[in-house]
C-alpha cells in the first residue's frame, strides 16, 4: 500500500453512536428497502437462484436517498455497476429491478441488461468504469441548450478516478459550464484495492484542478447531508457550475458475492459506520417496525417475481 499523503485519501475512523437524526418515514423506508433488496440478492445467489454477478451497495444506501428529493424528474441520472440503490431511490421499483436481475417478465430491460445495464426514462446505468461521465456531459450540453434548469447527475466511485474519461469529461464540463453533478461514492475500496493503493492525491485536488467545485461529505445522516447538498445542487442547476460531491462512505458488503479480502480490522471499521446499525441504536422503535415491514415486503416481492415466467426478447440481429 502506498503512502497516504493526506487524510482525504480514504475514509476511516469510527462513527459516533447515536448521532443520527430521526428520518422521515419515506426516507427510512427507501433505505431499508434497498438494504433488504441487496441482502435478498446475496441470499438468492447463495441458493443458486441468480446467475451472473451483482454488486450490492450495502452500507451506501443513504447516498441516493439523500440525493433523491434534490433531483427533479427531468434530470438525468447515470449510474454504474453498483447501482441498485440508485435505481430504487429514483424509481421505487424493486419488482422491475429484481425481474431484470432474474430475467423474469416485467423486467425493466427484458433481462438483457441485468444488474449493471438499466435504462428507464432518464435513468441509465452501464458497466464500464468512467464511461458514463462524458456521456453525462453530453446530456448536460443538451440540457444547457434546450432544458435550462435540468441537470445530469452521474455516480462514480473512488476507483473510477483511474479512468481518463473522468478527466476529459470534467475538463469539458467546466470549460463549457455544463449542468453536471458528479457524485463520488468514496467507499475506500475499489473491488479489492484500497483507495490509498490506487489513487495519488485526492478527489478534491482532482476536482479543483479542473475548476470544478468540490464538497466532501462524511456524514451518514440523510437530513444533514441534504442540507449540505441543496446549495451544491443549486449551483449546478441554476448557475451551470459543475460540482463534484464526494461522499465518504462505507462498503459494508463484498465487492460482488463473497469476495471480500479486506483485513478484519478494516471490515470492522466499515461495519461500525453502517447507518443501519447506527440508526437502529439511535431510533430503535422507528427502526424496528419499518425494518420488519421492508424485510417482509422484499421477501414477498422475491417470491412473486421468481414465480413469473421468463422474460422474452426479440434480438435485433441483422
Amino acid at each position: 500500500m502506498g503512502d497516504v499523503l493526506t487524510e482525504e485519501a480514504g475514509p476511516g475512523g469510527l462513527a459516533q453512536l447515536g448521532g443520527l437524526s430521526r428520518l422521515a418515514d419515506d426516507d427510512l423506508r427507501t433505505m431499508l428497502l434497498i438494504r433488504h433488496f441487496e441482502l435478498k440478492l446475496l441470499d438468492l445467489f447463495d441458493r443458486g437462484e441468480l446467475s451472473g454477478t451483482t454488486h450490492t451497495c450495502l452500507g451506501q444506501e443513504y447516498v441516493p436517498v439523500a440525493l433523491a428529493p434534490l433531483l427533479a424528474p427531468l434530470d438525468h441520472v447515470f449510474s454504474n455497476h453498483r447501482g441498485h440503490g440508485h435505481y430504487i431511490a429514483r424509481h421505487h421499483d424493486p419488482h422491475g429491478l429484481l425481474a431484470e436481475i432474474m430475467g423474469r417478465e416485467g423486467a425493466i430491460c427484458a433481462g438483457v441488461g441485468g444488474s449493471q445495464h438499466i435504462h428507464r426514462d432518464r435513468y441509465l446505468s452501464t458497466g464500464v468504469q468512467g464511461e458514463s461521465v462524458p456521456v453525462a456531459a453530453g446530456v448536460a450540453l443538451h440540457l444547457k441548450n434546450r432544458e435550462v434548469g435540468s441537470l445530469a447527475c452521474v455516480y462514480i466511485g473512488d476507483g473510477t478516478f483511474g479512468e481518463g474519461a473522468v478527466y476529459e469529461a470534467l475538463n469539458m464540463a467546466v470549460l463549457w459550464r455544463l449542468p453536471l453533478l458528479v457524485v463520488v461514492e468514496n467507499n475506500g475500496i475499489a473491488q479489492s484495492t484500497p483507495t490509498g493503493s490506487q489513487m495519488s492525491g485526492t478527489v478534491r485536488g482532482r476536482a479543483e484542478a479542473f475548476g470544478a467545485g468540490h464538497t466532501r461529505l462524511t456524514s451518514l445522516d440523510v437530513n444533514e447531508l441534504r442540507t449540505g447538498l441543496r446549495p451544491v445542487v443549486d449551483l449546478v442547476r441554476h448557475e451551470h457550475r459543475p460540482q463534484v460531491v464526494e461522499f465518504v462512505t462505507h462498503r459494508v458488503g463484498p465487492h460482488s458475492k463473497g469476495d471480500d479480502t479486506r483485513p478484519a480490522q478494516v471490515l470492522r471499521e466499515a461495519r461500525s459506520n453502517d447507518w443501519y446499525d447506527l440508526y437502529a441504536a439511535a431510533h430503535p422503535e422507528h427502526f424496528s417496525s419499518l425494518d420488519a415491514a421492508q424485510r417482509e415486503l422484499i421477501a414477498d416481492i422475491a417470491e412473486e417475481v421468481a414465480a413469473r415466467p421468463l422474460s422474452t426478447w426479440e434480438p435485433p440481429c441483422v
Binding site: 461521465v133 462524458p134 453530453g138
Partner: peptide, 14 residues
Amino acid sequence: EGGIAGVAGGLALT
C-alpha cells in the same frame, strides 16, 4: 477523442 465521442453519445441519448 474518447471524451468527445462520449459527449456525442450523450447528445444522441437525448
